[in-house]
Nucleic acid binder design. Structure first.
Length: 116
DNA sequence: CACCTGACTGAAT
DNA sequence: AATTCAGCCAGGT
C-alpha cells in the first residue's frame, strides 16, 4: 500500500453502499484530515491497481463526475453508476442530495480510525 | 533535495 | 454571484 492514508480512503470507499455515492470532502472529513480532499482524489487515482475500490461512487461535492476521464472512457464511470440505478446527466448525478452517503452519518468514526 | 502538480473545498475577495 | 487563494498530502521531476 502506498500509505496508511490511502489505505484509510480505500476502506471507506469500499463501505459505500451500491447505488449510493459519496464525496472527496466527506471522506476526508471522516478520516479526520478535514481539508485533504485533494489527497482523497489522488488516492482514487492510485486505486487503479485495486479493483475492489468502487471509485465511481466518489464524486466532488456538487455530484459532478470530475474523475470520469480516468476510467479509460468518457462513459465508463457513468455506465457503472447507471448500472447501480444512478442517473447521470451532463456529468452530474441527478438527485444527488438524496443519493449522497455521508460516512459521518453511517459509520463510527473513532471506531474506524482505531481499527487501522 | 526543492519545486510542481492534482479525481477538492471552503473562505475570502 | 463569480473568481481567486490557500491549505491539505503524496508522488513525480
Amino acid at each position: 500500500m502506498a500509505s496508511e492514508f490511502f489505505d484509510r480512503v480505500y476502506r471507506v470507499v469500499r463501505l459505500i453502499p451500491e447505488g449510493r455515492v459519496s464525496t472527496y470532502g466527506h471522506i476526508a472529513r471522516f478520516l479526520g484530515t478535514g481539508r485533504s480532499a485533494r489527497v482523497v482524489g489522488y488516492a482514487m487515482n492510485a486505486s487503479h491497481n485495486d479493483p475492489s475500490v468502487p471509485a465511481h461512487r466518489v464524486v466532488n461535492r456538487k455530484g459532478l463526475l470530475t474523475g470520469k476521464h480516468f476510467f479509460g472512457g468518457s462513459t465508463v464511470m457513468e455506465d457503472l453508476l447507471a448500472s447501480e440505478g444512478i442517473t447521470v446527466v451532463n456529468d452530474e448525478i441527478q438527485n444527488f442530495g438524496e443519493l449522497v452517503w455521508d460516512p459521518m452519518e453511517h459509520l463510527d468514526q473513532e471506531e474506524f480510525l482505531e481499527s487501522i
